[in-house]
Design a protein around this nucleic acid. Sequence first.
DNA 1: CTGTTAGCGCATTCAA
DNA 2: TTGAATGCGCTAACAG
Lengths: 333, 333
Amino acid sequence: MPPSRSATMADVARLAGVSVATVSRTLSGTRSVDPAMQRRVTEAAERLGYQVNLVGRALRQTRTSTVGLVVPDLDNPYFSALAQQLSRAFSSDPGTDLLVFSADGSLETEARGVRSFLGRQVDALVLIPVHEQRSEPSVTTAAAAVHTIQLDRRVQGTAASYVGVSNRAGMQLVHEHVSTAVDVSRQPVVYVGATPDSSSAHERLDGMRQYFSPDVPALLGDFSAAWGREAAARILADGWTGATIVTAADVIALGVLAHLLHEGRSVPDEFRVIGFDGIGAAALAHPSLTTVRQPVEEMARSIRSLVESDDEPSSRWFKPDIVLGATSPAGTP
Amino acid sequence: MPPSRSATMADVARLAGVSVATVSRTLSGTRSVDPAMQRRVTEAAERLGYQVNLVGRALRQTRTSTVGLVVPDLDNPYFSALAQQLSRAFSSDPGTDLLVFSADGSLETEARGVRSFLGRQVDALVLIPVHEQRSEPSVTTAAAAVHTIQLDRRVQGTAASYVGVSNRAGMQLVHEHVSTAVDVSRQPVVYVGATPDSSSAHERLDGMRQYFSPDVPALLGDFSAAWGREAAARILADGWTGATIVTAADVIALGVLAHLLHEGRSVPDEFRVIGFDGIGAAALAHPSLTTVRQPVEEMARSIRSLVESDDEPSSRWFKPDIVLGATSPAGTP
DNA sequence: CTGTTAGCGCATTCAA
DNA sequence: TTGAATGCGCTAACAG
């Protein structure tokens, strides 16, 4: 069980027979200290099992060497991949910790996460907003207090930076691929997307309409495998016997694929399926999933550099690439 | 850009014409305050956009209303599922935030995460230890300072609580299933596991040996789909034409399955595949994966109740159940 | 019910 | 180089 009270600098100072200032200077290495005293301090700290109290430090300084990340949820493998890459990008710098908070799909919880991180004096906040409009208060609050970077999704017109992929460019890649590899008379294009209440859902839908057709058949739901299954069921119920199903996310695509195969439809002979994001599970599917891959690692590094340089808020769009899988093989139209 | 300095209680008190104590009492609702003053304070706080500084509060109080979670990584969907469920379990209590830190598979990073959370004065720490022995210092340090709960994996002989599933019971379920549903002469059992350097890997291997045979063929790697693929490749290279492949985790099983199907082998006719954990992706595979499901939601709730009651450290093992999928249909031996 | 004050643990002035 | 003293923002004692 926890001891009644853990050692403080004053305890270390007393044991070492020096002042707290010397302890502070020794342990944080901010100023040169006499080697002999240094040793005494280090030993005393060791003996007492002293651990810096970051709360005290944070209150005194302005910086906390902490960056907060608020994600909509951690079930979506794309978000957890972003969280993991971001953790990695920051862990190479021994000075900055990345802390993750899940909004659990709720605007209230998201707001709470933002307040929580702001209250903890994070040096910067990375946010994947839940909603394109309704997350605005959270983003604005955050941006007013600390360097804030929106990731993957964004609320427009805020003083926050943005890092993400060009969703339209992604859909353009899909269009090029489909044009050259699919016989769209036998396998017409259907879009299984997400309701445009996040910028990514919005932009991907817009991209579909721009590059394919303004009235491309579209079923809209959420970013989940369950929705993918349901959408596939509807497509079959409508009597389709062949189609090129372009989706807004790999999780949706995997749901679509699972249902089609479960119903005994063949992919890619009857139906073709195309994902978006490039999560690891896309390559594990059988047939493996054709998808638009986001450069997650580069995006994470970009965020780190944004956090470190405190320039004006800025936006950066990365170019995705397409990964051809077996759900839509190339060169067969 | 962030304002030079954000509003403090003193600012609110000045604007409202009251003392800081009244502001504190009003905003934290700890004591009754005259409604009129209450209004003035609330208004002033509103106008200044005041946000509590949790660092100041944490320094003054002993509690922070924060629980830290250190996971080995967030790429493994089982860990991100635990993180998500735990977030959800705590978010229903408006008073406690769950913060997640990824150790990125490294003992050093894990230690840093623990130090970081301890330094931030978390009320409790939940830890999925990276290594069965080598994480001992981190667990011990944590347990000495704060209520610590090991989750899913554990280091033995520490003063920390533990919440997890009975891995042996899981393997017993697998054994029962295989006994009744598989013709093991045509499809002998092979285990594709993980090197026993985490308690879960260890216990699952022991379970296999106990319920199947002490010398069951076993290939050991890590908890990844890449390892599953490699193991499957080795099994085929060894000339196996049929087997019941029991794995230590769904991610491994998905890798195995992907490779087998890629090589044109049929599942479940030639090979059967069984996972462990019960992650969502298991149901999305085609054929769907038979797996041992952990009651993740209950485990998360159990942790929350452990955190809230500060009893002695205790351990709780949950019973898993088996989910029959199409990679090993029931009733066909 | 309200105000004044002390002090949580630390880094950083200012003197010596 | 070292020590003493100050204050970061907040809440809890204590007086009024």
